[in-house]
């Protein structure tokens, strides 16, 4: 009997655009059942790393293994929530139909969603508190509401692994609380969640583990180990307002 590995492993991930490396040789590994933040300055390759890990953009080198399997073997267990600015908000689609998309991965080709799928989509909408908006077109919602709808879609996928790209950008405090509460519930159910994030103030409250990246890896592991002034300063290449950084000016 082989032991099933309960980890997500990034191995030597390297990505470049037209010869410029934007992610360089990133390797790290995390146990499943954790909420993991991917943190770094603007343009550090956070989203790129996530997309390359999922095989959504070409990479030069490296691979990702989830529970010992290559990524293409576990695709249906992956729920991905894109950055808000990647979505065409004028698309003719209603809130409830966006959530219904989450049931597609488990419906074979040629098969239409059934009544039971629609009911499940509504339950997912209720979980994010958006059921009253189910018949709205998505552009009629606020940023935070839109993000909650996309989280509902991810919930509808019944996935084991969640990848969220900047879910907290430009949303209201209430929506942010709803989203982080649900992410923590998912984590408590044993799901593994990766979140690209750039607001350092809440890192310690939100995440169990951290990936600190600025092209290269500057730290990976439990938040209390990685989220240290010296790591942060090296990664951000600047003083970030922690007391120890008030040193001599050069």
């Amino acid at each position: 009997m082989s032991v099933i590995k309960r980890t997500v492993e990034f191995n030597h991930l390297t990505v470049s655009y037209y010869g410029n490396e934007v992610v360089r040789d990133v390797s790290c590994s995390f146990d499943t059942g954790n909420l993991i933040g991917i943190v770094g300055p603007n343009g550090a390759g956070k989203s790129t790393m996530m997309k390359a890990a999922l095989g959504l953009i070409p990479k030069d080198d490296g691979h990702v293994e989830i529970a010992g399997e290559p990524i293409h073997r576990v695709r249906k267990e992956i729920a991905y929530v894109p950055q808000r600015n990647n979505i065409d908000w004028d698309f003719p689609i209603l809130v409830k139909d966006v959530v219904l998309l989450g049931t597609y991965p488990h419906r074979g080709i040629f098969k239409r969603p059934r009544k039971k799928d629609r009911e499940w989509a509504m339950q997912c909408l209720e979980r994010v508190g958006m059921e009253d908006f189910c018949n709205r077109q998505i552009a009629e919602l606020s940023g935070g509401q839109q993000q909650r709808v996309f989280l509902a879609r991810a919930l509808a996928q019944k996935a084991d692994y969640f990848f969220l790209d900047e879910p907290f950008v430009g949303i209201d405090v209430g929506s942010e609380e709803v989203i982080i509460r649900i992410l923590k519930q998912l984590r408590d159910q044993g799901k593994t969640i990766f979140v690209v994030h750039h607001d350092l103030s809440k890192v310690e409250n939100y995440f169990d583990d951290l990936i600190l990246i600025n092209k290269e890896l500057y730290g990976a592991g439990p938040v209390n180990k990685v989220f240290q002034p010296e790591n942060m300063e090296r990664c951000f290449k600047m003083r970030i307002g922690l007391p120890s950084s008030l040193g001599v000016e050069v």
Binding site: K51, I78, A79, Y80, V81, D88, F163
Partner: peptide
Amino acid sequence: SFDETMAAAYG
């Protein structure tokens, strides 16, 4: 058509 990245992510 709506969300190509999500579609690619689930295979």
